[in-house]
Each structure stands twice: as C-alpha cells, then as structure tokens.
Design a protein around this nucleic acid. Structure first.
Lengths: 335, 335
DNA sequence: TTGTATGCGTTATCAG
DNA sequence: CTGATAACGCATACAA
C-alpha cells in the first residue's frame, strides 16, 4: 500500500508546466483554456491520479454540493416496513440526483447522535438540511435557520413556526375517511391515534375528532405509535371499552393492519361487523385481508418537494413557507 | 432572517480580547488555558454563536471525523424488509457512536450516484469508507485503498483481493443446513440460489453443491435474487422440473418464505412432504407458517466489526485482512 | 500559559 | 488566455 502523498494542484501544475490557476480552470471545466494546455493538464491529472480536496474547495467556495437528510429516529424505526422514510429518501435522492448533489443520510436517534448531527450541519458540512420526521418541538431546525443554513422539514414543525415545510392535508384526508364511514351507515366510529408528539399524529386525531363531533357521534380514542404492536394493543383496548363499535379509523396502515387481525381474532368480520380505514397507503395495504381502504399520502412526492424547496432556498430564491400536498381516499374492501 | 456573517475564530478572539490560538485551544478543549481566560472565551463563543468551520478544520487536521457507509443499491432494495442493510447500518451506527464519529449513508444505485460517491469519498470528505454489499467486481474499493483511504467491505470483494473485509462463514452454514436435511432422510434436495454477482450468492451455492455432491446426491438449482418475488418464480421452476424434490435450501429467508407459500399453494406440506431451510434468520423467520429453520448470520455484528476494523485502519493500526464470523443453524419447524 | 507566524489546497481577483 | 497573489478559517510549531 503506497501511502503516496496525495498530489495537489501544485504538483499537477509543475508536471504540466503551467500555473496552479490554469490547472484549477481545467479541472473545473473552464472554457477559456487553450486546447493543447488543457490536454497537457488532463494528462498530468491522470498520471498523478489527482483528486481535488473538497475541504479546501468548499473553504473558498462556501459550498459543499451535498445536502443532509436527518432522521430523528433510531435505525430500527427508520427501516421498518412502513416504508415512509424510504419513500422520502427515494424522493430526495431522485431530486438531488438531477441537481448532481450528494445526499447524506444521518440518523439522530440518540441524544449523542442528535448533537453530532448538530455539529455536522452547523459546521457547514452541507449546503442545506432536510428533516424527515420531527418529534416534539425539536429546536435544531430553527437554530439552523437562524444560522442562515437552508432547512426544510417534512411535516409542520411543532416548535418554530418560521421553518419552511412540506406536509400533506391530514385533516382533509381524515375528514373524507370518516365521512365515508358515516355515509356507509356507521355510527360508532373509534380511532387508533398516532403519537401526540408528531404533527401527523396530532392532526389526524384532530381531523377525526372534528368529523365525528360535527356529526353528533361519540369520540372513542386509543393511542398507538404508528407501529403494528401498538396497533394490536390499541385495538384490544377499544374492543374492551366499546364492544359495540362498528368502525375504526387508524392513523397508520400498520396500525390498521394490526386492527384487521385483532378484530378477526376477536371474531368480528371486516367490513360486515366493523369497517376499518387506515392512513398512508403503503404497499401492503393492497394485500391485507381484506384489502385496506386507506387515505393515501404521496410519500415520495414529499421527499421531492422538500428537496426542490431546499435547493431553491440554497440558491437564494424565495420560497413559499408551506407546501401542503393533497391526500386521497383509496377505497378497497375493508370499509 | 439575519444572514449574519458567520463569526470566525478571529471574531471570537477580538471579542474575548485574546489571540486566535487561545480561542482555538479552548474550543478544542485544551487543558493548558487559564480558567478566567477560558471562561471569557466561552462567553464570547456563546454571545457570537460561533461554530467552527469544519472544512477549514479538516483542511489542516486532515481528518473529518466522519465515515461513509456506501450501499451500492437503489433505495428500494436497501430498505426492503429483509433487514440486512438496516442491520449493518445499526451495527455501524452503534460503533461509530462510541467513537464519536458521524455516520454518512450514501446510496449508489445509479451510475451517476456511483460516480458522485467516488468524487465524495476520494475528495477526502470522510476518514474512511464502508461498503455494504458489492455487486460484481466494483473497482471503487480498490481504487480508494490505493489512494490511501481506509476501506472495509462487507463480504469478500470479488474484484480486488487486497481490500480488507468482514464476512460470514457461508459455506460452513450451508453445509450444516444440508447435512441436517440429509440426516433427516432427505435425498432430493434442491436449492434456490442467490444472485451470482454477489459473494453471498456464489458461496452459498458453492456450499450447497459441495454438500450434495459429496453425499452422492443430485444437484438441482434455480436462481433468484434474494427477493420474495424471485423466490416464488424459482420455487415454481423447481417444482416443474423436479416434482419429486423432498427438500429445498433457499439462499435467503425472503426466498425461503416465498418457497413456503409456493409449496403450500402447490399442495405440498412443509415439512412433511418438503423440508425448507433458509439463510439469514430475519425477524419474520420465526413467524412464518411453519416457522423457518434457517442459517443465522450475525448481521448487526458484521456492521460493528467492519466499523471497528475501519477505525483501526484509520488510526494507522494494522488489521487482519479478513474477518469471518460464524454462522449458526437455527432449528424450527420447516426442516 | 499565551501569542506569532505559517501552512493546509483551493478558487478568485487582477494584471499582463 | 495565462500567471501571480490574496483570501478562505483553522490548528499548531515555535517563540516569548
């Protein structure tokens, strides 16, 4: 292993018999360099295996051509099978690909991880930061924004209102879902709510509450955290407390899936005895038994829009502070 | 939004009435600074909201305190439910957490993505590079190694043998699995092999071939790519070509799961008519119908060991060129 | 214990 | 079209 001293611009310049400035021009594709010189430089670059030092470059350009996508979650949840994070990642990756920028994924599940992400992003290691899903009132997005670092969140940030975000129309989707249940003759509609430290959890519950209340129906709530396990527990609680329920709206498809199975175990037929509606429209929603009626949110599009907003911001263009994407009720067999 | 000019060491120094060098010492936790001065500096740092510029720092220290984990796959596959990548990510995250280094995840699914990763890593944006799963003979690990950048691969790299790696004992695991089938009286043992451009696919097939051949048994192979869909197709082909098979070893649990369902659909009972063994021991393996007998590989441990090796390498310590972790046959009901 | 001076590898500004 | 030369923001050997 030749721990060869890494060649610098200087070395290339000497080899090619030109100045550093000229080498820099060629490397950066400037068109104002004479053809023979350009060739000589390219040859020298190849012979020496020269690769620009990004730290030096970004020190002067003030850019890094990379963008961070921060996921304030432990790896387990990020890579669970609800495919929400992966969808956002895919959307961001596609959009950054087009802009020829590097996507840097960072997990901030632990306290230390969160701090490390803060150091990394405030240290200008990236041109902008995307936040994938925030818990509670995380101060980091606001802090970065105040430092002048472009930030876009997925989901309205709970703490600092001044951070631009991309979200979906939770309330509209839930309202349509509950209305659909009511139209189908359901009158005892329960909900399995999501975590109340996340905007998605909060708004979907609010949407449910508004819909049942305005229809003069009772409000039956059990809380989960979007996962299957929590869905099972919540569904059991609901069945115990309200054995006569005839419909349930779950704030995530994973919890809806759990509800489906729990209801069957309890001897209830879906949708005959109990109708079930989920939220997300993940891939498996079409393959559950029975196939799940659910509120679709355009997950990948969230990633794309966030990224586009961020790139605009980084380019100094003004952007709208909030983008809200539509949701859609997908009718299948469970309701 | 105050696009405040970002404060530098210089600014902090002036504010605190000391030299840049002293501020630098305080910021980096040097103990040789008088208490009152240290306090003054800290105050100035807080008042100005100073954050060190990482590019400038790494330009002089030659370190970035971050490590890249490259996944040469599209996002879809990385985040599929086999949980192999997530396991490696978790292992690496845990180990880097302990070392207080930042984990930088990079997807290199497309051609352009691959190039971008190359620029990023060769540009010394990270102190070392972990490769999660290589297809074919990717030249990048070798190239980075020759540039003096620490690299560790998961799985023996197919191209350049000089790159250190961490792998599991594929052959040993498969041999035990097949032997278990033979001990159970099976004589017509087929395999659903993995992709032959990946070391895992190659070695698991080789292990199967060696085991059946040395037992004087026929060698029946159908190829998949580790996914469920490919497993269904492969199992169907095997059933069509060798309707009398009495066992199948699948090179991944996902494919084994598919085999289970396909066999049942075809009217075969597992394990009565056909025994099935998988490879991986993913979480769902315990919940399939029937629960899956499989070869466990310590996925998370792979991530941890890779990372430890990389950190040693980056610290200039010598490391063994190959680490091979043991596999274990987990007996459940499918075989 | 603190300050001074220097260099890390680029890009950008200006002359020529 | 090309070449000096000055930043960029920080860490550190050396001097005081």
């Amino acid at each position: 292993m030749t721990t060869a001293q890494r060649p610098t611009l200087e070395a290339v310049a000497r080899r090619a018999g030109v100045s550093r400035a000229t080498v820099s021009r060629v490397v950066n594709g400037s068109t104002t360099v004479a053809e023979p010189i350009r060739e000589a430089v390219h040859r020298a670059v190849a012979e020496l295996g020269y690769v620009p030092n990004l730290a030096a470059r970004s020190l002067v350009t003030q850019r890094t051509d990379s963008v961070a996508l921060v996921m304030p979650e432990a790896a387990t949840r990020v890579f669970s099978d609800d495919q929400v994070f992966p969808g956002i990642i895919r959307g961001a990756a596609l959009e950054l690909e087009a802009a020829d920028k590097q996507l840097v994924l960072m997990l901030a599940g632990s306290r230390a991880g969160h701090e490390r992400v803060e150091r990394y992003t405030t240290g200008r290691h990236v041109d902008g930061v995307l936040f994938a899903s925030l818990h509670g009132a995380d101060p980091l997005p606001g802090r970065l924004t105040r430092l002048g670092i472009p930030v876009v969140c997925s989901g309205r940030p709970l703490g600092d209102a001044s951070v631009p975000y991309v979200d979906v129309d939770h309330v509209g989707g839930v309202t349509r879902a509950v209305q659909h249940l009511i139209d189908g003759g359901r009158r005892r509609i329960a909900t399995i709510a999501g975590p109340q430290d996340m905007v998605g959890g909060i708004e979907r519950l609010a949407g449910y509450q508004a819909a049942v209340t305005s229809a003069g129906l009772p409000e039956w709530v059990a809380y989960g955290d979007f996962t299957r396990e929590s869905g099972v527990a919540a569904m059991r609680r609901l069945l115990a407390e309200h054995p006569d329920l005839d419909a349930v709206f779950a704030a995530s498809d994973l919890m809806a899936h759990a509800a489906l199975r729990t209801l069957r175990t309890a001897g209830r037929r879906v949708p005959d005895d109990v109708a079930v509606v989920g939220f997300d429209d993940i891939e498996t929603a079409a393959y559950t038994e029975p196939p799940l009626t659910t509120v679709r949110q355009p997950i990948q599009e969230i990633g794309r829009r966030m990224t586009r907003q961020l790139l605009r911001l980084a380019a100094g263009e003004p952007i709208e502070p909030a983008v809200v994407l539509p949701t859609e009720l997908i009718l299948r067999d469970s309701a």
